[in-house]
Simulated scan of single mutants.
Amino acid sequence: MIRLLVADDESLLRMAFRMVFDAEPDMEVAGEAADGERAALLARRLRPDVVLMDVRMPGMDGIEATRRIVRDSPRSPVLVLTTFDLDEYAFAALKAGAAGFLPKNARPEELLSAIRAVAAGEAALSPRVTRRVLERFAPQMTPPPALRDDRLARLTAREHDVLAQVARGLSNAEVAAALRLAEATVKTHLSRVLVKLGLRDRAQVVVFAYESGLVRPAADPPEA
């Protein structure tokens, strides 16, 4: 059973979410919050499997609440939902440690699939979409060089190669083809990368690769 915490300042929307989730045999709503501070508190208290987080709420917003939950309740991944389908919000959510980002007008099956993916420890935002967001906002990233070198030094040469390919948005099969490895071997290397770097999913791998300087933003395409 996937236990959910729903954080949104609109009570009718929380009610609608509850009706959808309670109709699923593998989901239940463990708690609701109307603001970010309450969401962070309930995440610590209830330890939900997934937190559904609105961005714009009174008091503490969803981005700051996500940051606190990732810090204080790391076993409760956050899926950010917003009516504002803008890259700026996706970037802020990913930087805060969210496991995914979806607009509120996503189809129910998309939302349910994303919840199940996040609960299983996967990212609900494809690496390619993550990379598109970071290509635009990577210049804002200025990590300390010492941190950058220390974390990358934990990886073997092959793990480093896999990290770089995943950060470019490649699937496991595509990484396997590029590096001439078995797909199962790629999965093993990626699992080790996640453990060594303390990352949760592929979306965080992409964020780390850009922040560390391993992957650079693509040059702007030439004007027509």
Rank of each mutant, 00 (worst) to 15 (best):
I2G: 05
L5T: 07
L5S: 04
V6P: 00
E10D: 14
E10A: 15
L13H: 02
M15W: 14
R18V: 09
M19K: 15
M19I: 13
M19R: 13
F21I: 01
F21Y: 07
D26P: 05
R38Q: 15
P48M: 10
D49R: 08
V51C: 09
L52V: 05
V55Y: 07
M57E: 03
D61T: 10
D61I: 10
I63C: 02
E64L: 12
T66A: 04
R67S: 09
I69A: 07
R71E: 10
R71D: 10
P77M: 03
P77F: 01
V78M: 06
V80H: 06
T82E: 02
T83W: 09
D85S: 00
D87S: 08
E88P: 09
E88S: 12
Y89M: 08
Y89K: 07
A90N: 05
A93P: 02
K95C: 12
A96N: 06
G97F: 07
A99R: 04
G100I: 03
L102F: 09
K104W: 06
R107I: 09
P108V: 10
E109K: 08
L112D: 05
S113Y: 04
S113G: 14
R116E: 01
A117W: 07
A119T: 04
E122M: 06
A124V: 05
L125S: 08
R128C: 09
R131C: 02
R132W: 12
V133K: 01
E135Y: 05
F137V: 02
A138I: 06
T142E: 15
A146Y: 08
L147I: 12
R148L: 11
R148V: 13
D149S: 11
D150G: 08
R151K: 07
R151F: 00
L152H: 03
A153E: 01
R154C: 00
E159R: 00
V162L: 09
V162Q: 03
A164K: 10
V166H: 06
R168S: 13
S171G: 15
S171C: 12
A173K: 13
E174F: 04
E174C: 08
A177M: 11
A178G: 04
R180C: 06
L181E: 03
A184M: 07
T185F: 10
T185L: 11
V186S: 12
L190K: 08
R192P: 00
L194G: 03
A203V: 08
A203D: 02
V206M: 01
V207P: 02
V207C: 09
V207H: 02
A209P: 05
A209M: 06
Y210A: 09
E211K: 09
E211A: 13
E223I: 11
E223D: 15
